[in-house]
Computed example of a mutant assay.
Amino acid sequence: MQDGLFPSPLIHRAPGQILARGVCRHLSEMNFAALEEYVPERGRRVDVMALGPKGELWVIECKSSRADFMADAKWQGYLDWADRFFWAVDADFPIDILPEETGLIIADGYGAEIIRMAPETRLPGARRSAVTRKFARDAARRLQGWRDPQV
């Protein structure tokens, strides 16, 4: 209910965070567990990492403008951490600048739609196991921190 008594949950979020929220909602409908602003290894931070019901790992980078996309020189380094890589953008984004060999999601703060499925490049077994374990531990730590901030 948005009637002035309750402020919008999107009011204090950056544009990329708003896209991430819609992406995570859509992924949840697909039975994926997603973490925003996830660090798969020191020095790398992805906007959304998702773990699917069959163990698949997806990385989604949210871009709010052409300038935001053009400034991202490290996205190819994220390919080593996922089976599929997607860009998430809003409906006004100039999608012709996005690499065709990546997935495409159109999103807003309330939902998303996969427009182009990313090609699958399966992670090697040892990497998959390590990334999945780290994802699970980090998700549990986030939940524990939310429930008990003193920990």
Results as ranks from 00 to 15, higher is better:
Q76G: 05
A88L: 04
Y78K: 06
I95G: 04
A20T: 00
L35A: 13
R127I: 13
G4K: 05
P9L: 06
E56F: 03
S64K: 02
N31T: 15
S65K: 09
F93M: 05
A33N: 08
M30F: 03
R147D: 08
A33Y: 04
R122P: 03
R127E: 11
F69G: 02
R128Q: 14
R116M: 03
L5V: 09
T102H: 05
G16K: 07
K63Q: 06
C24G: 07
K63I: 07
E37F: 03
R128V: 03
D47T: 01
G125K: 09
D47F: 06
I60C: 03
V39H: 11
R141D: 05
R45D: 08
A136H: 01
L35T: 01
P7L: 08
P53I: 04
C62K: 10
A82E: 01
L98A: 07
E29F: 07
R66K: 14
Q17H: 03
S28Y: 12
A130M: 00
K54C: 07
V39E: 14
K74D: 10
R13V: 00
V39W: 00
E100N: 12
W87R: 01
K134H: 00
K74P: 06
R147L: 15
E100C: 08
D138N: 12
Q144T: 11
L51W: 01
T121C: 09
R45C: 11
S28R: 11
M30Q: 14
G125A: 15
R21H: 05
